[in-house]
Nucleic acid binder design. Structure first.
Lengths: 193, 193
DNA sequence: CTCGGATCGTACCGATCGGTTCGACCTTGG
DNA sequence: CCAAGGTCGAACCGATCGGTACGATCCGAG
């Protein structure tokens, strides 16, 4: 479906639609795995329009990574919040949500880590670092509420489990990865409080 | 330093030297972050020589990933073996070795994972999967010798910790990552036996 | 009804890509 | 001492890259 014909009611809508469609394609093919020309035909938009909205391919990539990071973190936070007040339930809910993600046929690992692995550009690496920051914040919060002796350290260990589970799921098969990681996380949580 | 002048005593030596030098450059710059021409000048070899030995840039990448995977796994296995007979000591030694790696200024994450994140080629993904297999084998062996109830599951959880620690160290700062992961690993090992 | 702007499609740009070829050189084995 | 072959450096190839320019089209606001 073409993004728009002629003038669109709202240019911002066009930008959002491009971002949405480009995210899917770039995640599937890799940032350097598809050229701007083919990308444009795939998402049904002209190069001129894309470049007016994002200036540069890098600009598009950055906008997409920012949006994606935002969404993923909020999604996990929501899953935790929906699990009730018990920090253990919240932690379990995070890994259950991750397992859901791993089971998605289009799952190809963490988009931010994939991007940082290929683009050594500073802004991309900064977005990835910020992404891990927000993960860490979420997990440290759970550790604190669970009364961990050292919530900072436990949070970081849980972050490693989250990222490790994602890596293993992406490159070694995702079946049961979330469950195994959840079990390990709860063990660490028990031992640390 | 040029790899050789005129005919070399041993063409295999040339190939090994190219592999060695190319590995460092490609790891630093990313597989697609440098062209074959610049790569050749950087490592002091002509394109013709490189192409005769590896046929293709992909061929070079695959050879380099295979060698690298081999070395990393054997290095970790050696570190574990050198720690004595106690499985706990062996596990701790693995994470101490990892911390050493994280502290290396040229550390840029796991080369296999980085490669798999950008090249969707099947052979590259296969090398990465095989790499994780060997990691898993090492860790499961430790879990078995430690008398874990379910060595397969514990091995996979330890694999997640290893990969997670590497990801965090690469993208979020490596200080203390190995120690935190080691502590978590020993906690899991205790809880599982 | 007209005007301004968002869009399309296409052609085009210079640069770089991976890969090939060739003549000259050097070294080693016979 | 000479032939064989590994190597170099540079030229060269077609393809593709990210990015720009332009005329045509369409739509909404006045």
């Amino acid at each position: 479906m073409p993004v728009a014909k002629g003038s669109t009611i709202d240019p911002a809508r066009t930008r959002a639609a491009i971002l949405e469609a480009a995210t899917a394609v770039l995640y599937e093919r890799g940032l350097d795995g598809i050229g701007v020309a083919e990308l444009c035909t795939r998402i049904g938009v002209s190069k001129e329009t894309l470049y007016r909205h994002f200036g540069t391919k890098e600009g598009l990539v950055e906008a997409m990574l920012r949006q994606r990071s935002e969404r993923v973190v909020q999604w996990l936070a929501a899953a935790a919040a929906a699990a009730g007040d018990d920090p253990r339930d919240q932690l379990a809910a995070v890994f259950d949500a991750l397992q859901q993600w791993y089971d998605d046929p289009v799952f190809r690992g963490c988009a931010m880590l994939n991007a940082a692995a290929q683009h050594h550009v500073e802004t991309v690496r900064a977005i990835t670092a910020r992404h891990l920051d927000r993960y860490l914040e979420l997990l440290t919060g759970i550790a604190e509420r669970a009364g961990a002796t050292d919530p900072q350290v436990l949070g970081r260990q849980l972050l490693m489990l989250v990222e490790g589970a994602t890596v293993v799921a992406a490159h070694h098969g995702g079946a049961g990865a979330g469950e195994h990681a959840r079990h390990a996380a709860l063990t660490l949580l028990s031992a640390a409080s």
